[in-house]
Amino acid sequence: MQIDLSGKHAIITGSTAGIGFAIAQGLAKAGADVVITGRTQARVDGAITALKKDTPNAKVEGVAADLGTAEGCQTLIKQQPSTDILINNVGIFAPQDFFDVDDATWQQFFDVNVMSAVRLSRHYAQGMRERDWGRIQFISSESGINIPSEMVHYGMTKSALLSVSRGLAKVLSGTQVTVNAILPGPTRSEGVLKMIGEMAEKEGISQQEVEERFVKENRPSSIIQRLATPEEVASMSIYAASPQASATTGAALRVEGGIVDTLT
């Protein structure tokens, strides 16, 4: 299968590292013009440099904005008023005991993980509908189905994204705009590797040992029995963004290594 996204414009939120960067990289290699976003100009500039080094002919722009706020979303919209492909990837996570999560933290997780996607999708989907072509994706998680007891507040936001994704697909029924959710499992993203590295240093063991133990103790139903790579997740996203995926919409596409033990 040859995926060609030449002439398409893509915005990938939260794309200075990890899954978001891997998606931006993959879309650029497929020929799309990509927009990287991050909270600081330094992070955005660094990601653009890294992407151009890997893919010299890539057409890449960047926008620095805090998409967890309405003002930040408007900053992105003002600089990039339309797009063909929107990947709602920006998000935060942190393990925390349910009884210690205060109202402000619940609100912060909802604003960053859910409302950023709602605000941007609400804007960009209208142009896609008018042009009768587009791809919108919500990077959810297996945690949206398999709610982790150590991150109930995070799992809630990922469940919400599944609802928004399915509902928006119905709103755009009959058009050539598809809307899908991507469900990664634990992935070797920057944030996860940092957490695992800190655990390894604290316990005086290797990072590989911590990764293996994490999967065994926290995701024992995993079939692949390891963390996924950002590139593995990105491959699903790139396919869903392609012309070949025109009949795939309203779906929850799993890239979680078989952790969710259900048939559908």
Results as ranks from 00 to 15, higher is better:
residue 7 G to E: 06
residue 89 N to G: 11
residue 77 I to T: 08
residue 93 F to I: 09
residue 95 P to M: 06
residue 7 G to N: 06
residue 2 Q to F: 10
residue 96 Q to R: 15
residue 16 T to G: 05
residue 52 K to Q: 14
residue 75 T to W: 10
residue 79 Q to G: 12
residue 69 T to H: 12
residue 24 A to H: 08
residue 91 G to A: 14
residue 53 K to G: 13
residue 31 G to R: 01
residue 51 L to P: 00
residue 84 D to H: 07
residue 61 E to W: 08
residue 33 D to Y: 11
residue 12 I to V: 15
residue 63 V to G: 06
residue 59 K to C: 03
residue 8 K to N: 04
residue 50 A to F: 00
residue 21 F to W: 06
residue 3 I to P: 02
residue 68 G to S: 12
residue 52 K to R: 15
residue 78 K to H: 15
residue 9 H to V: 10
residue 97 D to L: 14
residue 39 R to E: 12
residue 20 G to A: 11
residue 9 H to C: 05
residue 24 A to I: 10
residue 73 C to A: 11
residue 30 A to W: 00
residue 36 I to T: 06
residue 16 T to Q: 02
residue 75 T to M: 11
residue 68 G to K: 10
residue 17 A to I: 04
residue 91 G to R: 09
residue 12 I to E: 07
residue 61 E to D: 13
residue 2 Q to C: 01
residue 17 A to D: 14
residue 27 L to I: 03
residue 79 Q to H: 12
residue 71 E to K: 15
residue 22 A to G: 07
residue 32 A to I: 01
residue 91 G to M: 10
residue 41 Q to K: 15
residue 7 G to R: 04
residue 9 H to L: 13
residue 13 T to R: 05
residue 18 G to P: 03
residue 39 R to S: 13
residue 77 I to Q: 05
residue 44 V to R: 06
residue 2 Q to P: 03
residue 15 S to W: 07
residue 65 A to Q: 11
residue 13 T to G: 04
residue 96 Q to W: 00
